[in-house]
């Protein structure tokens, strides 16, 4: 699953921002940005659509139907018991359980989806571009999509400290 990526190293986030603008003007496929701290302007420019919220809604609907079905089956069809004169099918006590199981099911399934999609799991060897990514440098990772040589030139012109290729 390792592809070659073009990686540019930056010491200054303003320079990175310039490079980002140039690459986005040329519609280059950006993969990721690594940095020591969150920068608002980068977050605003480099937005990525995630489908995870939609998956979460579907998981929530599945969980709520499943738990409602289970409670209805157990308390009405399979084993109806009269508790204090309440009807067999009474909604109020189900609400709390439905609420909690919806949250639980959505959370667990979303976490599994996220990890499955981004290939992160326990025991996976760590893949860092360079140890100093946790220190004070920014890294811009670009997909080698159509004209790698041109991308390298753009990155160098915009002021990247170093441009290299690496399998990630």
């Amino acid at each position: 699953m390792a592809y070659k990526h073009i990686i540019a190293k930056f010491k200054d986030e303003t320079v990175l921002l310039k490079a980002l603008t140039i690459l986005q003007e040329h519609k280059v496929n950006l993969v990721d940005i690594y940095g020591p701290f969150a920068t608002h302007d980068i977050l605003k420019k480099f937005t990525r659509e995630s489908k995870l919220p939609y998956a979460a809604i579907i998981y929530g609907l599945i969980s709520i139907t499943a738990i409602f079905g289970l409670m209805y089956y157990t308390s009405v069809i399979d084993y109806p018991i009269n508790y204090g004169g309440k009807p067999y099918f009474s909604f109020p006590p189900m609400v709390v359980i439905m609420f909690l199981v919806t949250i639980l099911g959505t959370t667990i399934l979303s976490v599994l989806t996220f990890h499955g999609r981004s290939m992160v799991f326990p025991g996976k060897p760590t893949q860092t571009i360079n140890p100093d990514v946790t220190d004070d440098t920014f890294y811009l990772v670009v997909d080698q999509n159509y004209n790698p040589e041109e991308i390298k030139v753009w990155l160098k012109e915009s002021g990247a400290d170093e441009v290299f290729e690496k399998e990630l």
Binding site: G84, P92, V95
Partner: peptide, 12 residues
């Protein structure tokens, strides 16, 4: 809203 209702409904 629900907590006030549920407890009174359940205790009956």
């Amino acid at each position: 809203w629900f907590m006030q209702f549920l407890i009174l409904w359940y205790a009956n």
